[in-house]
Design a protein around this nucleic acid. Structure first.
Lengths: 252, 252
DNA sequence: CAGTGGTCTAGACCACATC
DNA sequence: ATGTGGTCTAGACCACTGA
């Protein structure tokens, strides 16, 4: 009964071949994307949403459960459903795949900001971030240490169209996590990264920063990071010494 | 009512703090592991399982849905629920993360078996596969080509305790997919792999097989593969030319 | 205490497979 | 025609949270 009601009343769900819970999920994702509920904030309860969409609680629940399994929202029994945030209880370094051979994550302690600049994106970056040729952006160079030895150098590019003034702001604050900065400053939540790993020899400057011989192979990780909604936000090159460090990955 | 019934009757579920659907899931996983239903075979319907466990269909459904989301079983509307198999509709190369820079997967066409031998596992392998020191096994060396150029050399170790006669059988058949072979020959379904990626210089023999200079950096992927139940089954080293090839990974 | 998500039940109708 | 999984409903009780 309710089913036909839901299809004929003035709620935002259109009649379609898609299951209702999928339509609800898409609509809720859209509402999160457009900032109706900001990261860290609470969503209406299942009961309220069910009333709003004129569906049963179980149908709304299935929509929210899928969003939770994708990490978009976090559910806490007795409290409510929250938009996930790199701030809150969500792990900030979940995208880092570099580990020392003894098993520790190469984390953000001992990160040094080398310098920043505003520059035009080269062809490679334009292709990765889907930018118009010659688009401008901020470039940040950083150095990370592990056990008091230089471990990796990072080059980060953020397009000016999405992240204005990023270079200056980052220089002022030097945050440990760029993704936390992106969320707080521009309301951009990184949910997915694509990485391409290669072996090569370091450039002269890379070798000097990493304090290695220029004939020592290094690991190059080229990363493109995407925000909610699938927009490419950040491009990054990580060059790492691979003597006592590796890139770790689990596939299931 | 049924709830207390389920806890007091002679079904395999023990009273515990765990949700019933979790207990059902664990028991079903155990039944798959012990070979009650083999890869490719059909499970009893939700209705039957619900009757067997004296629970509602919805509870059993939730258990099966979790198994399906983990890839252990595959559900087909109108037909039934099947134990997933590398044979069936399941993708055989889902663990391969090496791509040519033009985007194609470095697949199993053009795979050459170089040689095989029976040998004792070295310390590194024993640690990875959790074997007793000096345990024996089969070692297989293979070469893959891409665009008529040597692309990567593989060293594969399979412990004799789990995979007896693997060297001779592989030499006879030279299958494209080792994991399909493991499933068909030993009923071992690989569900998870752990990979560690490093950059290094090739050995003299690797360089000659790959037809590269010994000063050209190569990508080394060290992989441990686990079967259903979490037993480490295979250890593998993949050494790849990284000129026109990369290791690709997506994290979300 | 009332409200939240977490679990569980028992029904319903549907599209699809098989015979 | 029958049986399967896929969707949807409308209730129930629980444990946890916070005022």
């Amino acid at each position: 009964m309710k089913r036909s009601l839901a299809k004929t009343t003035m709620n935002p769900l259109k009649p379609s071949a898609q299951p209702l819970y999928q339509q609800v999920k898409e609509h809720l994702v859209h509402r999160v994307l457009t900032g109706e509920w900001l990261p860290g904030h609470i969503l209406p309860s299942e009961t309220r949403l069910a009333a709003e969409y004129e569906l049963s609680q179980g149908t709304v629940r299935k929509a929210i459960e899928e969003m939770a399994s994708e990490g978009l929202v976090t559910r806490r029994a007795g409290k409510g459903t929250f938009v996930t945030s790199h701030n809150g209880d969500y792990q900030p370094f979940r995208f880092h795949r570099l580990y020392s051979d003894s098993g520790e994550k190469v984390a953000s302690d001992r990160v040094t900001l080398l310098h920043t600049r505003v520059t035009a994106a080269d062809k490679r970056i334009c292709a990765a971030l889907d930018l118009a040729p010659g688009a401008e952006g901020s470039e940040i160079f950083r150095l990370r240490r592990l056990h008091d030895r230089p471990a990796l150098v990072e080059t980060i590019f953020l397009p000016a169209s999405l992240c204005p003034e990023a270079a200056t702001l980052l220089e002022q604050r030097n945050p440990g996590s760029v993704y936390l900065f992106l969320e707080q400053q521009y309301n951009l939540l990184i949910t997915r990264v694509l990485e391409q790993v290669r072996a090569r020899l370091p450039s002269a400057t890379e070798a000097s920063y990493l304090e290695i011989d220029q004939n020592t192979p290094v690991l190059e990780v080229e990363r493109t990071a995407f925000s909610l909604g699938g927009i490419a936000v950040e491009w990054r090159i990580i060059v790492g010494v691979t003597e006592s460090m590796h890139y770790r990955n689990e596939v299931s």
